[in-house]
């Protein structure tokens, strides 16, 4: 046969082969398909988006920019009279509803910024430690073991001592203590992966260490980062409550933690709405993160079917 005929045969064969073999999906695509079917996860995702939007809009001033103003007499219980009185008023007559919205902004920003700080540190140290091993590993492990041996509260308190109180210190303090969990996981994964064939192959084609770390291995462990992000975010929001209880929280602005702390003194007099407002608001976003994190983990783990 002429070459033309030969080419056609091959084409047909490959086509046929392609038709038989299952279509390969990347981890992400697979996860995406699975997640799409999980209605609960989708609801949670949108809840989070909603909170993020509220936070953003509050930051640019669309919502609740007038939270400082008194809208009624002190300690009014919730009523449907107006949107401001929806959650009642606080000790100064300010709208608890507005404070809750403002608190959303603080919560989302605390979660976001502390994650933005902790994740790169965790990834960097974890990957270097897992990949290079030996003395690099020893130092990093020594460092995070030491850090995690010290009770978290103490570290947070000490860091806020140094940096002064306020939201920036909270960002840094939370970021500086949260990277450990991620680093551990990434380190473990890197240790597993660096011996794998595809990495050795990459070395074979001349990929540098940096390239191997970032271009080859990292994408394969990035799902851990996403999962960690959702956990981190939520942990940061809860940590802010404890910090406010200790007096180290956000200064001069209402946050959920500050509101719950105020509630300590109010509850015994029957003023429950500030506690309820902040708790409910926090509850839904933390819940959403939890469920989403779970679903992400289930979706991204190829072994669990």
């Amino acid at each position: 046969m002429t070459s033309n005929t030969g080419a056609t045969t091959i084409e047909t064969l490959s086509e046929q082969a392609a038709l038989i073999a299952p279509k390969g999906r990347s981890l992400w695509k697979d996860a995406y398909c699975r997640l799409k079917k999980d209605r609960l996860a989708i609801i949670c995702f949108f809840i989070i988006i909603f909170y993020a939007l509220v936070a953003l809009l509050t930051k640019i001033g669309v919502f609740a920019s007038s939270w400082e103003d008194a809208v009624g007499p002190a300690y009014q219980p919730p009523s449907f009279d107006s949107i401001q009185l929806l959650f009642g008023t606080d000790i100064f007559g300010r709208s608890v509803f507005y404070k809750v919205i403002h608190g959303t902004r603080i919560a989302m920003s605390v979660g976001l910024v502390s994650s933005v700080i902790s994740i790169p540190i965790g990834v960097l140290l974890g990957s270097m430690s897992g990949y290079f091993g030996r003395w690099v590993d020893d130092i990093v492990v020594w460092f995070y073991t030491t850090l995690s041996s010290i009770p978290n509260i103490m570290l947070l308190i000490a860091i806020t001592f140094v940096l002064g109180k306020g939201i920036t210190s909270i960002y840094i303090a939370l970021g500086a203590t949260a990277w450990v969990g991620l680093a551990r996981v990434i380190r473990g994964e890197f240790m597993k992966h660096k011996e794998r064939d595809y990495v050795v192959a990459a070395e074979g084609i001349g990929a540098s260490n940096v390239s191997r770390i970032f271009k080859h291995i990292l994408p394969n462990v990035s799902h851990f980062i996403i999962i960690n992000l959702s956990i981190q975010f939520m942990a940061a929001i809860k940590a802010e409550v404890i910090l406010s209880f200790l007096g180290l929280g956000v200064q001069g602005q209402p946050s959920w933690g500050v509101m719950i702390d105020d509630a300590k003194l109010e509850l015994a007099r029957g003023v429950w709405w500030q506690l309820a407002g902040a708790t409910v608001a926090m509850f839904f976003v933390v819940l959403a993160f939890n469920i989403l994190g779970d679903s992400l983990r289930d979706a991204l783990d190829p072994k669990i079917k």
Binding site: K238, V241, I242, L267, T279, L287, N290, I291
Partner: peptide, 22 residues
Amino acid sequence: VVVACVFGMSLPMLAYILFGQY
């Protein structure tokens, strides 16, 4: 059940204490 667990985890301890005591 998982959702119930997550519910439990989503409230700050301080809120539990205040509600519980009251």
